[in-house]
Design a protein around this nucleic acid. Structure first.
Length: 555
RNA sequence: UGGGAUGUAGCCAAGCGGUAAGGCACCAGACUUUGACUCUGGCAUUCGCAGGUUCGAACCCUGCCAUCCCAGCCA
């Protein structure tokens, strides 16, 4: 894992904790506040890297808090999934797990206090009227209820809480500035009426605080010093500060905003991801094409690779779009170092070793990970009949092609050096079988005579190869909504299709070791077992056959 | 339009008045029992544009341009 370098947030915090600073002497305390209305995606991982990472950098703590102030959007189903994904990534919130809704009682009391101090009032404008009176550029908003006596607002607010009014009939509004250029300050709604079942509070409440009111209070109650969030909340910071200043909270957290993660060709909006799931475009939140944490997991991404990616893209305020290739780079880096290799043939072509005894066989010890000798070796069987990759043989090889062609020599990894002597074709001229002679002196792939063999290819024994059952995933590209609603609903689900080919062959040891019923092939040259079907690590396919042609968007 | 932000290479991103870090990508070479990996070298005379201040500007000032966000009783 890379050591995170100093970023602009750290610069702010350094000032805050310096002698004489806003939090001089205080431990730095952050929080990660997902709304439980969907699964976490890699953008959340960036946020966690910042939230947990910042706390760690300063020897402080980071809380996990479910931001569940809107009962109609949230669901307990997501709470468990969110926790599981965070754990999988390796972030730890210790025993500091909270729900925003845990503070409803306290939040209500603070709202009453606000009314009593004359900083809030109950407004009876209907949603439609509210909108009409919102005002415009240069035109202040209006509310006939702004100067309602304090006692009256207190009483109405209590009746709101007790269910005396219908949804939309009343709101509690902050009394700030109806003429502000920042519309968030034009007497924003603090509480609204919702007769909805809350996933934790049940039917106890029928009024719910808005994010803008609840969030700063929750932060203050938990002793958060730095409330780190994405850029779209910049406009809300004045309101955040207003709430902290005007309510009777025990601390004064500071909000700092950073640019959220964008990855090219990738849908990152939770709303859209939700539609993909609900409207059946994908199998579920963990569909390997999804940028969700669980989707990436199924696709073979490791926690370390995702976290490292998030560390390395940096933190800034300039909106940015990182190339998907960088995520892949981070995966390769991790896999190359840690993954056990195995051989697999995706497009099988028969290779017959004509001078090898028919019916004979032998085993070779093959290293599991050339980068890590401690990973040991596995036994792979060899015989007269093998499968090799179709594009490891060419009838008419171009210059610098150093794999198989008639007359050419190649090394079968860890086995023997073979010379191609010919090939068979079907009536259409397609190559059906390649013929070769092996050199018995080169057992294990060694060259005692010191000769150089340019190419090394992978293979599997046709006699005991296992057929891998594979899935074929296509990219999902944008199909502009014919109704003109969501022009960019799906731009591209994933830049690289998970292309797997029917009939691919895997070495017996791989099949036996994992016994997976599904394989996913990453267009990276890595072959990973479905994480749901197996318990242990990732297997890396022996050669990056498919690396050659990279992704080209078709729209 | 009003408010809030942001512009440094194809993509991220340091830099905070002293003469453009680093990573990804890309190119060239070496090495190699994965054409991978690794290694070596190359890759911004210039920081959105135009002026100004200064011995000196990506950094300070003025004006302009471009892009993004907000204008929910969502978060």
């Amino acid at each position: 894992m890379e050591e995170a370098s100093k970023n602009f947030i750290h610069a702010f915090i350094d000032e805050d904790i310096a002698p004489g600073g806003r939090f001089a002497g205080n431990p730095v305390h952050t929080r990660f506040p997902p709304e439980p209305n969907g699964y976490l995606h890699i953008g959340h991982c960036k946020a966690m890297t910042i939230d947990f990472g910042t706390a760690e950098r300063y020897g402080g703590l980071c809380n996990l808090r479910m931001d569940d102030t809107n009962p109609v959007k949230e669901d307990e189903e997501f709470v468990d999934a969110i926790q599981a994904d965070i754990r999988w990534l390796g972030f730890s919130w210790g025993d500091r797990f909270f729900y925003g809704s845990d503070y409803f009682e306290k939040t209500y009391a603070l709202a009453v206090g606000l009314i009593q101090k004359g900083f809030a009032y109950v407004c009876q404008l209907s949603p439609e009227e509210f909108k009409e009176r919102r005002g415009d550029v240069g035109v202040p908003a209006t509310s006939p209820f702004r100067d309602r006596p304090v006692a009256e607002s207190v009483e109405l607010f209590e009746r709101m809480k007790n269910g005396a009014f219908k949804e939309g009939e009343m709101t509690l509004r902050a009394k700030i500035d109806l003429a502000s250029g920042n519309f968030n300050m034009r007497d924003p709604v603090l509480y609204r009426i919702r007769y909805a079942h809350h996933h934790r509070q049940g039917d106890k409440w029928c009024i719910y605080p808005m994010y803008d009111f609840a969030h700063p209070i929750q932060d203050a109650l938990e002793g958060i010093t730095h409330s780190l969030c994405s850029l779209e909340y910049e406009d809300h910071r004045p309101l955040y500060d207003w709430v902290i200043e005007h309510t009777d909270v025990p601390s004064t957290p500071r909000q700092i905003e950073f640019a959220r993660l964008g990855i090219n060709y990738t849908v990152m909006s939770k709303r859209k991801l939700r539609r993909l799931v609900e409207e059946g475009y994908v199998d579920g939140w963990d569909d390997p094409r999804m940028p969700t944490i669980c989707g990436l997991r199924r696709r073979g991404y490791t926690p370390a690779s995702i976290r490292n990616f998030c560390e390395r893209i940096g933190v800034a305020k300039a909106p940015s779009t990182v190339e998907f290739g960088f995520l892949e780079h981070c995966l390769r880096e991790d896999l190359n170092q840690n993954a056990r290799r195995a051989m697999a043939v995706l497009r099988p072509l028969k290779l017959t070793i004509v001078n090898y005894r028919d019916g004979g066989s032998e085993d070779f010890a093959v290293e599991n990970n050339p980068e890590d000798p401690s990973a040991g070796t596995r036994s792979v069987s060899f015989s007269r009949s093998l499968w090799i990759e179709q594009d490891d043989f060419m009838v008419d090889p171009p210059k610098k092609y150093n794999r198989l062609f008639v007359g050419g020599e190649v090394r079968l990894k860890s086995a023997y050096i073979v010379r191609c002597t010919g090939y068979q074709t079907d009536e259409d001229g397609n190559v059906t079988e390649v013929l070769a002679e092996y050199d018995p002196e080169t057992r294990g792939g060694n060259t005692p005579d010191g000769r150089k063999v340019r190419g090394t290819i992978h293979w599997v024994n046709a006699h005991d190869a296992a057929d891998a059952e594979v899935r074929l995933y296509d990219n999902l590209f944008s199909d502009p909504d014919p109704d003109g609603g969501d022009k960019d609903f799906i731009t591209c689900l994933n830049p690289y299709s998970l292309e797997v080919l029917k009939g691919c062959k895997v070495e017996q040891s791989l099949a036996l070791a994992k016994a997976p019923d599904t394989f996913q092939f990453l267009r990276l040259g890595y072959f990973t077992a479905d994480s749901r079907a197996s318990t242990s690590g990732t297997l890396v396919f022996n050669r990056s056959v498919a690396l050659k042609d990279s992704f080209k968007p078709t729209t």
